[in-house]
Amino acid sequence: MSDNKLLGPDEAEFAKPLFVPIKRRSFFMYAGATAGATALLLAGCDDDDDDTDTPSGTVSLGSGDVGVLNYAYALEQLEAAFYAQVIATPYTGITTEERTALTAIARHEAIHRDFFKAAITAAAPTQIIGGLTPDFSKVTFTDRNSVLMTAKTFEDLGVAAYNGAGSLIKTNDYLLIAGKIVSVEARHAAYIRDLLSNGSFADSTVVNAQGLDQALTVSQVLAAAQPFIKDKINGDNVGK
């Protein structure tokens, strides 16, 4: 196995900040899951590892529809990890409504992440990317503005990513899944934007003169997301 990222032991616990104690029972559940995943990955090793052309330390999202799924999985991992941290260490002055809404968003993102993990595991178990390591060093989690601006960036980016990936998807069911998720992301984006500046839910920074929301290419999205992820992501073949 040339890419030891895939064997990251903290994959299932990715969203939880390290200092939050996990229940003993949960630990064993995840430990079991990880052992299973490890066995699965070892079983997937063969002699001609086709990741060899990728520089060490780089996570390749792969190609075709699986590449698109991994792309979505990577972005959902990032969002889920971010909101998990927001909930674990709420910013100063958070209101009850904000805490409730951000908790709901955190759960939606965790569900999206786990959904993709399960879907890719079912559809292409040898091609799923591992748990990514986020880098939130530029986010001040105690500061409302810092947190909400980052949330806005992630939500708008997520919407633009799904919108740009739609035409890369070949399988009808995946297009529908992307559609089911992107509108929830857009609802999040609108909510977060209104928290920062009421009425900015669909302003001209995201919706163009034709009334169309942003769509970004894989490389544009990854360039924007990369500063928040320690692993180097390669999405050159997504959808191809």
């Binding site: 799904y162 992307a178 559609g179």
Partner: peptide, 21 residues
Amino acid sequence: LLETTVRAHSTEARHAAHIRT
């Protein structure tokens, strides 16, 4: 047509969220 439609779709979702807010 697909990209146009998914982009109009997420604009609608932004509107929906604001109306609900």
